[in-house]
Simulated assay, not measured.
Amino acid sequence: MDIAFVSRMGGITRGGGEIWDLKMAEGLEERGASVTFYAAKPLRAGFPEPIEKFEVVPIPTPHLKDAAYAAPKGIGGALAHLDSRVFCRRTTKALRERNHDLVQICSQPHFAQFVDRIDAPVSIVMHGEPYSLWYDVVKPRGSTYELLEAFDQVITVGGAREAIEARVSAPVATVNPGVDTDVFTPGDGTPVDGKQVLFVGRFVPAKNLELLVEAFDAVVDEHPEAELVLVGDGPRRNRIEGEVERRGLTDRVRFAGYVPNSELPKIYQRASVFALSSTSEHYPITILEAMSSGTPVVAPEVGAIPEIVEDEQTGILYTADSASGLTSGIERMLADSKLRTSYGRQARKLTVKQFDWENQQDRFRSILRVIESNS
């Protein structure tokens, strides 16, 4: 089977969606398939995060995503739509020059307008419920859900399946992410004695990092030796740096910037607790990586997080957007080393037992075989 993976951000960043694509592609090649990636390439730069192991067809695009995040909602919606449309149009042209057995799209419902120009079945994975500033806010002539009708298969991640199945007649299946438990390990098993709070992710509005800084400000009152480490980058970094400075926390908060995936395991191992402050999430791989590393989690009850974190067993859940809830969870973890060790060990056991990539890769392969047989 010859499969094309259309992963717009695959060569630019390594978020959950991009990791899902790469792991599914690796699983397919291990099972005898041939995989080609089609990835957006910024006009004035190379790939910031090159895709290795696979053939890559670069698609030159303006890459306006960061500008769209920073702009007012209406303008941001227009910029995001333009960026996506340019990518979809140019990718379709490139796909028509090849002869793939199946095309797999990563979270690009806008591709619906071009599906009928591709001479192969087209499936799409959605890492959450479909939403577009352009189709749902700026130019609401229906909804993004309607775009999904064009695809031969919709694959969902996390808790999005129920909402999509209720509004879309196309076949829907779920393939969740996993974690490489041989890479993300607790290290030598020595309990962490420090008081380091860790965040790994993009600096974008949904991560709600202002809340994490606010909560950490309160944590420092009880634990003045505590340190907050923020790993990642994005359009809101300057804003978060300003908030840290305004609160007088520059000596307690460290901006680590972008860190290659190969170096992340050691960062998780050094952390006392992994904290998320998101207002929305789908199926955050960073939580799985932390748990597999034996690092307990404090996270909001949003998206599929309650399906991953067992409250008061492998971590602590709190009501989303609650600074007091986040502060309390972090303080409890930092104050009790036995609690951290217990939750960390249970988190590790759970990930090894339930969240490995191989099972999900097998499921994905089975779904693609059905699509191929029905085409």
Score class of each variant (00 low, 15 high):
181 T>V: 15
313 Q>I: 09
76 G>L: 04
7 S>W: 07
13 T>S: 11
247 R>T: 06
68 A>P: 08
231 V>Y: 12
294 G>C: 03
30 E>G: 08
1 M>T: 01
152 D>M: 05
10 G>E: 01
24 M>E: 00
189 G>F: 03
321 D>R: 12
225 E>H: 03
187 G>K: 14
184 F>R: 08
234 G>I: 09
17 G>S: 08
54 F>C: 04
253 V>H: 04
193 D>Y: 02
193 D>K: 14
19 I>G: 01
173 A>M: 02
66 D>V: 14
45 A>F: 06
36 T>R: 14
355 F>H: 15
213 V>Q: 00
193 D>S: 14
181 T>D: 13
202 R>Q: 13
78 A>P: 01
76 G>Q: 01
370 V>I: 15
46 G>C: 10
286 T>H: 12
254 R>G: 02
154 V>T: 05
211 L>G: 03
19 I>D: 03
188 D>Q: 09
254 R>C: 04
131 Y>W: 13
235 P>H: 07
205 P>H: 06
314 T>K: 00
248 G>I: 02
321 D>S: 14
82 L>E: 05
18 E>R: 07
84 S>L: 06
364 F>R: 09
71 A>R: 13
178 G>Q: 08
252 R>T: 01
23 K>H: 09
357 W>H: 09
1 M>I: 01
258 Y>D: 11
150 A>R: 05
333 M>P: 02
256 A>V: 01
137 V>W: 02
347 A>T: 00
19 I>V: 13
336 D>F: 08
257 G>K: 10
63 H>D: 14
343 Y>D: 05
38 Y>S: 08
7 S>E: 01
215 A>D: 04
152 D>T: 03
137 V>D: 10
354 Q>F: 11
207 K>H: 12
236 R>Y: 07
71 A>F: 11
119 D>W: 03
38 Y>N: 06
297 V>N: 06
281 E>C: 02
102 L>C: 12
152 D>P: 03
259 V>H: 12
271 A>P: 06
98 R>M: 11
197 V>N: 11
313 Q>R: 11
9 M>Q: 11
344 G>M: 10
67 A>E: 09
41 K>C: 14
91 T>A: 14
350 L>E: 07
265 P>Y: 05
